[in-house]
Design a protein around this nucleic acid. Structure first.
Length: 598
RNA sequence: GCCCCGGUAGCUCAGUUGGAUAGAGCAACAGCCUUCUAAGCUGUGGGUCACAGGUUCGAAUCCUGUCCGGGGUACCA
């Protein structure tokens, strides 16, 4: 926000108190609605700049502001100074300049950085579910957000395409797949392969039960521990060894199945509107990780344990010892992350690297970053894990065994279907031409918005019942406001187009609803920066809701097209355009599309 | 055991980094479509901010302890 009266106040207080002008920053708040004024200066907060008690300061501020010609009224309550701006200055400093509203969200060039963001990172053994959607939507929004405020962003994906979990679906396919392809059974590749992963699990469980029946002492051991006691478990392990040795038949099956899965992922990403600047494959980078670890073993950064594993001792910085190569020489999860990070740095030369990964891996990233710092990776002080919380169902965690996993593609289909039904409900007999596009845009908007309005860090509950309603704090609520504005603009063109060149006069906007909308618009730039600073699109998402609420109140009480004179009509139209501009820009940062009609 | 994160209205969540009388949506109830799209608007009810101490002009927010929930603590990912 950029109010002349506040800037003047800053200069005045700085010179009065002999404080460096540049250090003084007064961020006004929107005055609480029930106080009936426009802006509030909270003088409790100003005491950090000036050595004066808050109430005294408030009096001083009040006495100063009362003389400012931009101010219509001032009121001092305790240490809060509330003010009403003249209509002239209010609109001049908020929405008169269209460009300023958007440009306020851009940081100065010296703060702009090259940021590398890794997100999504799926396993190629099953289709993506609601948890992955949260990651994808969040990652995509953060990339747009950083880019929007002026950073140079590269988005990368890391495909987790190797390891024993991949071999599980391969084994099951070998045994039960009958050489079929996804095309043969008309299935999406990731779903096709996922069924074999489930098939493995059920077969594994069957064998477990049978060996436990034969030997009751095994009941004390966990499923994990008994993995190699089962025939199919051993087979998966053997397949992994064959894979690592580059066995031709195994590699060819692996490539075939991964191809199916990645093809399925592509469709899902496309539907979500997600693209990456580069895709890394763990099968490529794990060897680099191993190579780096062995070099650092030479350099004595890592050491050998008694039984021949390679580890690093991080107890000096309050972490544990961490094995980075197993005693059999194979790599662990963190090994490939080391390799991938060096590769990413070499490819992109970023100032900062971010990882959007679930909060259960907070410790993993602490260890990873500690290792990379010890290895003196160039930007190792600018590595950040952005953790996000799990998505639970009302009954608890999603469990594949109990069939409660919310599949991404199915969810998208269902939401689009509901959006279609709701749309058709509204338009009676005249079915819109673009009904498919509408259903998709509204359905995806609802899913994305639902996930983004909750703080990234919060473990959230996905309520299927609530998600199917497009009312209240939802994506479609915001999209609807956009469509309403589009409709007004259309009607204006058709009915009053000849008035388009009439003069705008902001001070004609005299209702409180109009003022609130303008004040809300003025916050947009700060909101973008704050949201990026917090690494959390939720802040922006909730702002868009607030703006939309204010717009809807305006819409209800102040007709644009039936305004009592042309000047008022044109000016209100301009106000609508500002709102539309912000809604479009803000939603697009969140990866949500808009519609001209709903 | 140890470490991290959380506990705010019946439910799902905000709470601008310590500031005004703790807010929204849903659900419940009551209103508003001859006026720009009712996916909307207006109103009512609903709170010991888990609990107990402490810090200060002031605490949902910071500190300590207790209880409850989640996650981590792998030569899994």
């Amino acid at each position: 926000m950029n109010f002349k009266c506040i800037t003047n106040l800053e200069s005045y207080l700085a010179s009065e108190h002999n404080v460096d002008r540049d250090l003084v920053e007064i961020v006004p708040e929107l005055c609480p609605r029930d106080q009936g004024m426009d802006l509030t200066v909270n003088c409790y907060r100003l005491t950090k700049f000036f050595n004066l008690n808050p109430v005294e300061l408030a009096k001083k501020v009040t006495n100063y502001l009362v003389l400012d010609t931009d101010i219509e009224a001032v009121e001092c309550v305790k240490a809060f100074v509330n003010m009403t701006l003249t209509a002239d200055s209010l609109y001049r400093d908020t929405i008169a300049k269209e460009r300023t509203i958007l440009d306020n969200g851009i940081i100065p060039p010296e703060e702009q950085k090259k940021i590398l963001i890794e997100y999504s990172a799926p396993n190629t053994n099953k289709p993506q579910h609601l948890g992955h959607i949260r990651n994808n939507v969040l990652g995509n929004a953060l990339c747009s957000l950083f880019s929007r405020i002026g950073h140079n962003v590269a988005a990368v994906n890391l495909i987790n395409d190797r390891g024993v979990h991949i071999c599980k679906s391969m084994i099951a396919y070998q045994r039960f797949g009958e050489n079929q392809s996804p095309l043969d059974v008309n299935k999406k590749g990731d779903h096709f392969v996922g069924e074999f992963y489930i098939k493995f699990e059920s077969e594994f469980r069957k064998q477990l039960e049978s060996i436990r029946n034969e030997d009751s002492t095994l009941n004390e051991k966990s499923n994990q521990e008994l993995f190699l006691y089962t025939e199919i478990g051993r087979a998966a392990q053997e397949l992994l060894v064959a894979w690592e040795q580059g066995d031709e038949a195994v590699m060819s099956l692996w490539k075939l199945m991964n191809g199916w899965v990645l093809n399925g992922f592509d469709q899902t990403y496309q539907r979500m509107g997600i693209t990456f600047d580069q895709i890394y494959y763990e099968s490529d980078t794990y060897n680099l990780g191993k190579k780096i670890v062995l070099e650092e073993l030479e350099n004595k950064l890592f050491n050998l344990t008694e039984d021949g594993a390679v580890e690093i001792d991080l107890t000096d910085i309050g972490l544990d010892r961490k094995v980075v190569l197993r005693k059999d020489g194979t790599t662990v999860y963190i090994t490939q992350d080391i390799g991938t990070t060096f590769q990413k740095y070499a490819d992109h030369n970023p100032d900062q690297m971010l990882w959007i990964v679930g909060d259960e891996q907070i410790y993993h990233f602490k260890v990873l970053f500690a290792i990379l710092r010890k290895m003196q990776l160039a930007c190792s002080n600018e590595l950040t894990h952005i953790p996000y919380g799990m998505v639970n169902l009302p009954g608890g965690r999603m469990k594949s065994r109990e069939g409660t996993v919310v599949d991404a593609d199915n969810l998208f289909d269902e939401m689009a279907e509901l959006a279609r039904a709701a749309t058709l409900d509204r338009c009676g007999s005249s079915i819109p031409e673009n009904i498919d596009e509408r259903a998709e845009t509204i359905g995806m908007g609802a899913v994305k918005f639902m996930l983004l309005k909750v703080n990234a860090k919060t473990t959230m509950t996905f309520d299927p019942e609530a998600s199917i309603k497009f009312e209240g704090d939802t994506g479609p609520y915001v999209q609807y406001a956009y469509a309403r504005i589009a409709s007004i603009l259309r009607k204006f063109e058709n009915q009053h187009g000849d008035e388009a060149n009439a003069a705008i006069d902001w001070k004609k906007l005299s209702s409180k609803e109009e003022k609130f909308v303008a004040l809300q618009c003025a916050r947009y730039g700060d909101i973008l920066k704050k949201s990026a600073y917090d690494c959390d699109p939720a802040y922006l998402t909730n702002y868009l809701l607030e703006l939309t609420k204010d717009f809807n109140r305006f819409y209800k009480n102040n007709s644009v097209l039936s305004a009592k004179n042309t000047c008022l009509k044109i000016t209100r139209l301009e106000l609508c355009k500002r709102v539309q501009l912000i809604l479009k820009d803000g939603l697009s940062v969140l990866g949500i599309e808009t519609l001209k009609a709903m």
